[in-house]
Design a protein around this nucleic acid. Structure first.
Lengths: 229, 229
DNA sequence: GTCTGGCATACGGTATACCAGACCAGCGGA
DNA sequence: TCCGCTGGTCTGGTATACCGTATGCCAGAC
């Protein structure tokens, strides 16, 4: 006997307006250059609600979430403002990033499979020799993906989550610094050393190399980035 | 001439209902034992609003913040539930904690003053010899304060903030594990070694000791704590 | 007795109305 | 002319009404 049953996929209505607005605003804020002179940092609740064609209630809930996350500051009776991170704060973020990623490297030496570590090396095969400067944009993307892969491979979801959050604030910085000086060349050398340490399952070395690599970025930002406040 | 003026205490109007409710709920959730069998994990918006004698709007904004922070989960059309952390998640938190605190130790060796490091040692002078077990509660408090002091002394506000957030979820665990086995004795020995490394300004050693000390806690939780799911 | 469809009710999501503080412009007095 | 007061408006904070869905109960049918 053949039973033909009706198969329907469950409709996902479990994404509320609050969440939609939250995501939309978050993306919008991340994609705008908040450090530009003429940046409009003030958000008008009523106008936003109008633009989204929703009421202020779910919008305000979304804004409350964004404030909790640090992307926005709500001043009672004054308005909601996109926050500019200070150089100090960016440096602290990179420091925390260094702590997290170096711990991730340590975890990888203990838990990751050889296959996974191998895949890291493949990411850079396309950038042989002097190819880096010629394809600086691609390399920048690969660079970011390398670090995110390490965080993911740690199998510690919390590390990845916190780092992702930090990354939101750092994206513009990171993209803007990669092409300075001899950074791309040094960067790829560092990466190779890190991969070697992971392959050798040398937890202490991998941790140290990752930490120093990231703290190098901090030093670079500290001395070379001026457009932060 | 005597001027009798009306003295009123400053109204704290720059703290919105949303924030007040947020703090109040957060404290309430942290202080209840969410792992008890009969724990009431469901929150009723309307009843809460009634209890606080406010409307649902600021309450919902506070709940949205709590959800963002991970203390609560809002299921559309179903309600808001206090989240129980799984053992897995607790272990990840301790891992991140280890990463942060070990980085904090590293920073201390570079930036903190001798006076500050000295103050760490003083925290334990009252627990000479076998005094620990006799005053286990006091020691537990000191123990927590020791770790928080390290985080603070790093002068990296972000490290402290993230760790504080993690600590909310770990408080009950930490308090419940300190008295097991020979942990208090080993704990104080570890602490002393950490202090010595800080005094010697040995960044690598201090970092390693702090990391191992915290990861020990993780191991202990992993093997000895069963009441998490 | 059990299964099912309908109805009542409860509760969360959203919209809207109202209130109060903040800021500004214009006017009047010094 | 300049300072300060005042009223109006703008905008965020709060309360409340309404809507739709989830849930539980009951009745009727098999």
């Amino acid at each position: 006997m053949t039973v033909v049953s009706l198969v329907v996929k469950p409709i996902n209505d479990d994404i509320s307006l609050k969440e939609k607005i939250y995501n939309s605003l978050k993306e919008a804020i991340c994609n705008m250059n908040i450090y530009a002179e003429n940046a409009q940092l003030r958000l008008d609740e009523r106008r936003l609600a109008e633009q989204f064609a929703i009421s202020r209630t779910p919008l305000r809930e979304a804004l409350a979430c964004l404030e909790q996350e640090g992307l926005v500051r709500i001043v009672p009776r004054r308005g909601v403002f996109i926050v500019r991170k200070t150089k100090e704060e960016i440096l602290e973020m990179i420091t925390v990033w260094a702590a997290l990623e170096s711990m991730a490297a340590r975890l990888i030496t203990k838990n990751a499979g050889d296959r996974d570590i191998e895949s890291l090396r493949k990411m850079f095969t396309e950038f042989e020799d002097g190819q880096i400067r010629a394809h600086i944009d691609e390399y920048s993307e690969t660079n970011i993906r390398f670090h995110q892969t390490i965080l993911t491979m740690s199998s510690c979801k919390l590390i990845k989550d916190i780092a992702d959050n930090l990354f939101i604030h750092m994206r513009s910085i990171r993209a803007g610094t990669i092409s300075d000086d001899d950074r791309p060349d040094r960067s790829i050398i560092d990466h190779m050393h890190i991969i070697e340490a992971l392959e050798a399952r040398d937890a202490d070395l991998a941790e140290r190399l990752v930490r120093e690599h990231t703290l190098n970025l901090a030093d670079h930002v500290k001395t070379h980035i001026d457009y932060l406040d």
